[in-house]
Amino acid sequence: MPKKVLIAGFTGAMGQKAVSLVNQLPNFELVAGFAPKAVNEPERYHIPKTAQIFNQLSQIPDHAADIWIDFTTPAAVYDNVYFALTHQIKPIVGTTGLSDDQEATLIELAKKEKLGGLIAPNFGMSAVLLMKFAEEAAKYFPDVEIIEMHHADKKDAPSGTALATAKMIAQNRPEHQTAPDETETLANVRGGDYQGIKIHSVRLPGYIAHEQVLFGGPGEALTIRQDSFDRDSFMSGVKVALEKVDQLTELVIGLENIL
């Protein structure tokens, strides 16, 4: 029997890519879509005519699906994943914006419900590799800044990928003398700060998702960069998550942890 999939945020750009992916996979069946403003016209959204469309969480019945794919908004994702877990649906989450406390709560809830799942700041293989390479480089280059560049419609800043990169670097770099206090003649010009790692967010039309990690050392520098030019690039990671989610016994953070 194919696994039943519900896609939350199925009307959006990433949601529609996920719809196309699930429609192509023989072992998965798209049975439902969830989006507050969706109309009950499956053909408009390229989903099967038999698929149900829900506008509110309260409309979704128990056992509506086996897997919940979430590409919604930072304001909605916590409630969505909480709902999925408490209704025995395994979540695969590409929406960013969850706080550390929210992630911790969801991880504990997943343990209580005895469910596995995945929260991934980025499903692009190039982004996952960038994070891994940056984590390794941090052992040797503790002075680092991050620039992330995304499309103008992105709701949160910094991106989940940039924040995850900063966390991985912070865990792996040695203690070192930070730069002296600076004077900003223009407020916030030095970007956000995560444990001494400056993060700069760019939002412009024409971009999709891009990140640079800049390391500096005495007499040398190292730059690691990844570029996602099309949202299709994220679907390889979603496919991996769909194929492996049944093997997970807990809620995992980061695609790199299931590869």
Rank of each mutant, 00 (worst) to 15 (best):
I197K: 12
L248V: 00
D66P: 00
D100I: 09
Q16Y: 05
I146D: 03
K154D: 07
L25G: 05
G217W: 13
A162N: 07
I199E: 02
V240N: 14
L259T: 05
A76C: 04
R190M: 08
A127L: 05
I169F: 02
D153L: 12
A164L: 08
G196A: 03
V189D: 02
E148S: 07
P74F: 11
N122Y: 08
V238I: 09
G116L: 07
D232F: 15
E135W: 11
G124M: 03
L98D: 03
D232Q: 13
P2T: 08
D153M: 15
V128F: 08
S20F: 08
A32M: 06
P2R: 10
D246L: 00
A120Q: 14
T86Q: 02
K114R: 10
I107N: 02
Q59G: 01
A76N: 12
T105W: 14
S159V: 07
K17E: 06
L6H: 10
G217V: 10
R203M: 05
A241Q: 12
A170Y: 08
I89L: 10
A120T: 08
T72P: 01
I53F: 12
T178P: 10
S126C: 11
P42L: 14
E184T: 03
Q247L: 04
T183M: 06
P218I: 13
E136S: 13
N27D: 12
A127Y: 03
H63E: 14
S236H: 05
S159T: 11
L106M: 14
L204F: 07
A164V: 11
T96Y: 00
E136A: 07
L21A: 10
G217L: 05
F71V: 07
L118Y: 01
S233E: 06
Q24Y: 08
I258F: 04
D246K: 02
T223I: 11
S201I: 13
P26V: 09
A162T: 07
D79E: 15
G33A: 04
E108W: 06
L6W: 08
D227I: 12
D232C: 06
A38Y: 03
G116K: 04
S159H: 05
G33H: 00
Y45S: 12
I119E: 03
E103S: 05
A51M: 10
V213E: 15
L109N: 10
W68M: 02
M14W: 06
L115P: 02
G219Y: 06
